[in-house]
Structures are given as C-alpha cells and as structure tokens.
Simulated scan of single mutants.
Amino acid sequence: MVPPSLLSERRGAAMSLTAAASGLVVFLLSVSVVQGQRGWGVSYTSTEICAVKGSTVEINCSFTYPSTLRGRVNTLEKTFWFTKKKDGEFVDLTTDSKYAGRVEDLCGNNICTLRIRNLTESDSDQYRFRIITNQDAYWGNPGTTLSVTDLQVEVSRSGSSTLLQCLSRCSPGQTSYIWFKNRQEVKEGTSSYADFRYESADSYSCALKGYEDFPSPSVYAPKLPSVSVSPSAEIEEGSSVTLTCSSDANPAANYTWYKEDEDSPRASGQIFNITDFRAEHSGSYSCGAQNKLGRSYSTFHLSVGTGSSTMMVNIIRTTLGVLMLVPVFLLSLWTRKKKALRSTTEAHEPEEIELDSIPEYENDSHTAAQREDTEEQEDMV
C-alpha cells in the first residue's frame, strides 16, 4: 500500500508533468503559428468595398516576406490576386478569361493594386493576395470582399411627401449616398433613404460616394402620353379599333382610358380595343398615364367615317369598272368606223344600168345614127 504522502507526491508529480506537457503543447502551437507568420504578412486597405456596375474599382494591399528562411536567402518570385482555385491551384486573375481585358495588377515597393474596369455584378467576390518565393508561398486572409451593385431608386408616397430609397447590395454604413434633384446634388449621407417634397417637373437619382459618375436611373412622373390608333382615326362603322397609349415614365406608368362625359373609366392597360365600332362610340377619349410621382393625360377624337381600307376598296372597284368598259368602248368605235367606211365605198362605185331599162326613144335615136353612117359610106364608094 502506497503511503498517502507518496501518493500525494506522485499525484503532484503527475500534475506537474501534465502541466508541463500542456505548456509544451501550447508553446509548440505558438511556435508553429509564429514560425508560420514570422516575416510574412498581407495588409488590405479595405476588407469590404461596394462599387457600382460599370465603374472601375481598385483593391489595395501591402505585403512582407522574410528575407531569409531556414538559413537560406528567400527570394520573391511572383505575386498575384486570386478568387478561386482550378485543379488545386490558385488562379491568377490576369490569366482568367472572365476578367480578360478588364484587370490590371500594379505592384511596386511591396504595395500592390488590383484594378478592375467595367464591373459586372458577377465580379462580386472575395479577393486575396498571394506571395510566392523560391522556398515557400503565403496568402493573406481575410482578403477584400467586393460587392458590385446596380443602383435603383424605390419610390413611396406619404401625402405630399415622396420617400425615396437608394437600393443597392451595399451593407448599411458601408458607403455614403449622394442624392441628385434634376441632376444637381442636393443631399449626402450614410442613410439610403431621402424624403423630398416632389413636384411633377422634378426627377431624382442617387449615387455612391466616389462613384458620382455612375448614378442610378432617374425617377420621374409620366411625360405627355402618345396615342396610336389602328387602323386609322377615322373609322368605318362595324370595324374594330385598337388604341395604344405609351408614356416615358420611371417607375413605369399604369394606363387608364376615359371617354368624354363619362365618370367611370372605359378600360385599363396600355392597349384598349373597341370591337364593332358604331356611331355612339364616336367622341373624345383620354389616355391617362400615372405612377407614384404623378400623372399625365392625352385627349384625341374618334369618329365614324370612311376608313382608309374601305376607300382603297372603292378605288379598286372603280378602277376595275373602268377597265371593263374600255373593251366595250373600243368595240363600239370599231363598229362605227366600219359602218362609215362601208358608206364611203358605196358612194364611189358606178351604177350598173340594165339595157332593158333604157327608154325606147333612146334606142331609136341610136338606130337612126347607125343608119346615117351606113348611107355615108355607100355614097363614097
């Protein structure tokens, strides 16, 4: 049996050994971390950047690496930015087809800048910097997270006030917002909301601080609508008419159709069809375009008349009728000319006289003349 004192000593020795072992483990881990970090480092200027679609962004960092490693000279061979791996290797962004012609890696004095032009929303990612020497390699965490956003302004109304919100993928407080009224800067702040007293002639847009040249599309009330009528504004009775209304507006306009002296709308939507058009459909109509920022109207007149299609049919019918009469007219002329020619020919032909029709006294005279001639010839003999 082990005396209690010895047991206590053994326990104390065991605890000391355990503590020593634990301390050694911690020390070794610390040494490992220190060895892994000693002389190596990447410092990013920003860990989060929010940029606007179509713009150019610059991601910056500075780096260090040990001049000697494992008793040998440690020489820098390559540095590059990456977002992903391919076949187990980090992909240099300057060789990635996705960024072809849009990316530059600018380095000098251990300071590097990644410049990306013509940003797209698919460029949103985490960008890291990698160092490669003749002995080892290192890349810095956590990198810089880039969010590329396409700005939009959302509109809501409260009485005479208009509440606008600049929608983006930026985290709250990540950037400052700038507001423009009729293209003139009127407000700046970290809030994405703005409260304005709106008038129909006003337009508003927003931008991110540092990206003022890439504002959101402006929001504004509908402009004066234009109306097209098919087939024409003067309609043949019984035909169908299609009316189309369009207005430049942001947010997009909603459309309502009205007829004069009627309180209720005739229809809603951008296209209004009237089938079997009658005289009672004639009159003045209005197209109303409205959104949360205002409304605008255009008025026009429809009436029953000879539509263009009917007019064309009548023209064709008349033309065909004329063409059908031409042969009849020519035949009539030819017949008349033939009759006239026959009459002229008969007038110039000599008359045939029958001997039987000669009067008797004419025969007697002819006989007497012949007798006298005979007598003269006999006397001469």
Rank of each mutant, 00 (worst) to 15 (best):
T256C: 04
S168A: 12
Y204Q: 01
Y285H: 04
N60A: 15
P4N: 10
T275A: 11
L69T: 01
T18W: 12
L325W: 03
S240C: 09
P350D: 09
S268C: 05
T345L: 15
W139G: 05
E376G: 04
Y44R: 03
A19G: 12
I132C: 06
V381E: 12
S247L: 05
T345A: 13
D195E: 12
Y211S: 07
A19F: 15
P66N: 08
S168E: 03
T244E: 12
A20P: 01
V227H: 01
S228K: 12
S230T: 14
N363A: 09
V57Q: 05
P3T: 15
Q370S: 12
M15H: 09
G23R: 11
T318W: 01
K53Y: 04
K85F: 12
T190D: 10
T75N: 08
Y297N: 11
G140H: 07
Y44C: 05
I235C: 05
T79E: 09
E352W: 04
F63P: 02
L24W: 11
M1L: 14
L163Y: 03
G54N: 08
V219L: 07
K98D: 09
P215N: 03
S192E: 13
L69F: 10
S124I: 08
G210T: 06
G307Q: 03
C287F: 02
R117E: 15
D379Y: 06
S205Y: 01
T242E: 09
S8R: 15
S160Q: 13
S218P: 07
D373G: 11
C112D: 08
F129P: 03
F90R: 14
G159E: 09
V322R: 05
T113N: 13
V42L: 04
G269N: 10
D379P: 00
S97C: 00
W334Q: 11
G23P: 00
D373R: 14
C245N: 03
L6S: 11
E360L: 14
A13K: 11
G143R: 05
A253M: 03
S62G: 15
D136S: 15
V227G: 08
S160M: 06
N254T: 11
S161I: 04
V25Y: 14
S5D: 13
D261P: 00
R183E: 15
K86F: 06
E199H: 13
P217A: 07
T133V: 05
K53P: 00
F329P: 00
T94R: 08
T64Y: 04
Y127R: 04
A14I: 12
L243I: 07
S247G: 02
E262P: 00
V241T: 10
N118R: 14
Y138K: 10
E354Q: 15
E48T: 14
K338E: 10
E154D: 13
E236N: 08
S5I: 13
E9G: 02
S284R: 14
